[in-house]
């Protein structure tokens, strides 16, 4: 089965169902390093997306555009903006298409990653969600079904958290804390992992 706007709706529902406890946990994590608004951004962002979910068009790209717009309607954490940038990058790749084969997932995630690097200013290795995404892209390459792709993604997101746990954050507000961030999970990386976990 290919990836369609209906698949997107199922995904939105799954995340929205669990976003409140997820948000509370992320706020707490983010409060130790940043301004503690990551969870709020996630909760409000996904509630905005859920509100437009029924009206999403069959054109997968246009559906991603509408999601991007809805996600960015939250002020606060730059995470919301970066999610919007990601969705938009995927929208550009899929505009005019209604069915996306699962083996294209790594390419679409790569487009999202490239856009976030270009717009957000962080690099691979800075201990951000970009590192989680890099791991997920590598792990999902060659996977042809949703089930295989999601299982590989979950494992890769876990692996990235473990790999970067003892490294310092190198960008954003967390950078100020320097070596104190060794032994702490990056909240954005946890957000990626939590979102993937909603599907498994």
């Amino acid at each position: 089965m290919a990836l369609t706007t209906d698949t997107l709706r199922i995904g939105i529902n799954k995340i929205t169902d669990q976003v409140d406890p997820m948000g509370a946990h992320l706020n707490e994590l983010d409060g130790r390093l940043g301004d503690g608004d990551l969870g709020v951004t996630m909760v409000n962002g996904f509630k905005n997306i859920a509100a437009v979910s029924d009206d999403l068009p069959d054109d997968f790209g246009m559906a991603c555009m509408d999601c991007a717009k809805a996600m960015t309607k939250v002020s606060g954490s730059s995470f919301g903006t970066l999610m919007g940038i990601s969705l938009m990058a995927v929208a550009k790749q899929t505009k005019g298409q209604t069915e996306i084969e699962w083996d294209r997932l790594p390419d679409l995630l790569q487009a999202a990653l490239d856009a976030m690097i270009a717009r957000g200013g962080a690099s691979i290795g800075d201990k951000t969600m970009l590192d989680s995404l890099t791991a997920v892209i590598a792990a999902t390459t060659g996977k042809t079904s949703a089930q295989d792709a999601l299982a590989a993604a979950a494992e890769a997101a876990d692996g990235a958290l473990i790999e970067f746990f003892d490294q310092p954050c190198k960008i954003g507000r967390a950078r100020i804390f320097g070596d104190k961030t060794k032994g702490m999970d990056d909240p954005g990386m946890v957000a990626i992992k939590s979102m993937i976990d909603c599907f498994t």
Binding site: K69, T72, S78, T81, I85, M88, K92, R119, G121
Partner: peptide, 17 residues
């Protein structure tokens, strides 16, 4: 400024579409 630039860049991409 980071936020202004990022958001305007996105708005311009939407406008382009």
């Amino acid at each position: 400024y980071g936020g202004d630039k990022m958001n305007f860049a996105m708005a311009c991409e939407f406008a382009d579409m």
